[in-house]
């Protein structure tokens, strides 16, 4: 299970947006810790601000107030897996995975070796020269995961990474991700609105409310892996979380 070191510490993080109807508070004083090498799931109804929270951690958006502190041993940079893959259409798989290293100024050979390692790990060996438009949704997201791992950052943020996939591919990718994770430990923050996915994947689950979002509850599923979504404990936990989860507005 998770190590004890705290990788990211969020304290009273709040965020609002101005829009046509006025000011909407999205995050309301969110405090949470992300521990080293854990698989933390942030679960909440649609539109509750989970993505905003992740973007703030990734420094793609700024919080209005509150602090985010990274473990001093961590670079403070994160790998990011996007729901809509966010691949560069004009680059092949290899070049897409290499990209974060390229911007960091890594040597070509080292870049390629690292990229190839992760392309192999996500099961895309043989597709290095393919362009994103030639890949299925599941394969695109494998590229997305490889890219996040290849970035070399020890924290990976995943924003509903399987949300755009069909149900069958989604189950497959969940297992794939757990397999990848067992090969190489990383600290993962995984956002989803799917309760079963949260229980299936997470070492720890934080349940968020509708916006303005707060952390409502924390769950630590005491279930043996690989988890079975038909086991009685799984279903009990699912019922309990369902009862506590707001409906999406």
């Amino acid at each position: 299970m998770a190590g004890t070191g705290c990788k990211i510490k969020l304290e009273s993080v709040s965020k609002s947006f101005d829009d046509k109807i006025g000011r909407t508070a999205v995050l309301d004083e969110i405090s949470l810790n992300v521990y080293e090498n854990e698989f933390l799931v942030i679960l909440g109804p649609g539109q509750c601000g989970k993505t905003v929270l992740l973007n703030i951690i990734a420094d793609m958006e700024q919080a209005d107030s509150g602090t985010i502190t990274f473990d001093p041993q961590s670079s403070g940079q994160t790998g990011f897996v996007f729901q809509r893959y966010a691949l560069f259409n004009w680059k092949n798989v290899l070049k897409n995975v290499e990209l974060p290293l390229k911007f960091k100024g890594a040597e070509k050979e080292q870049r390629q070796n690292t990229a190839m390692k992760y392309i192999e790990m996500v099961g895309l060996k043989g597709f290095e020269k393919a362009y994103p438009s030639q890949l299925s949704g599941g394969m695109k997201q494998r590229v997305g995961i490889a890219r996040a791992y290849a970035s070399g950052n020890d924290i990976i943020l995943m924003d509903e990474p399987f949300g755009a996939l069909d149900a069958q591919t989604r189950y497959q990718m969940q297992d794939e991700l757990l397999k990848i994770r067992s090969k190489e430990k990383k600290t993962i923050v995984f956002v989803t609105n799917n309760i079963e996915e949260a229980i299936y994947m997470g070492d720890r689950i934080l349940l968020l409310s509708n916006k303005p979002s707060k952390v409502v509850k924390e769950y630590v599923p005491d279930l043996e892996r690989p988890r079975k979504n038909t086991s009685s404990q799984f279903m009990e936990l699912r019922d309990e979380i369902t009862a506590n989860m707001d409906l999406a507005l």
């Binding site: 990734a58 420094d59 793609m60 940079q77 966010a86 560069f88 974060p100 911007f103 960091k104």
Partner: peptide
């Protein structure tokens, strides 16, 4: 989103212009 990908990977404004 692509600009964000490059930005979080540490791309400079010039790199964003030329590479993205």
């Amino acid at each position: 989103t692509l600009l964000d990908v490059a930005k979080t990977a540490g791309a400079s404004k010039t790199q964003l212009f030329f590479k993205v």
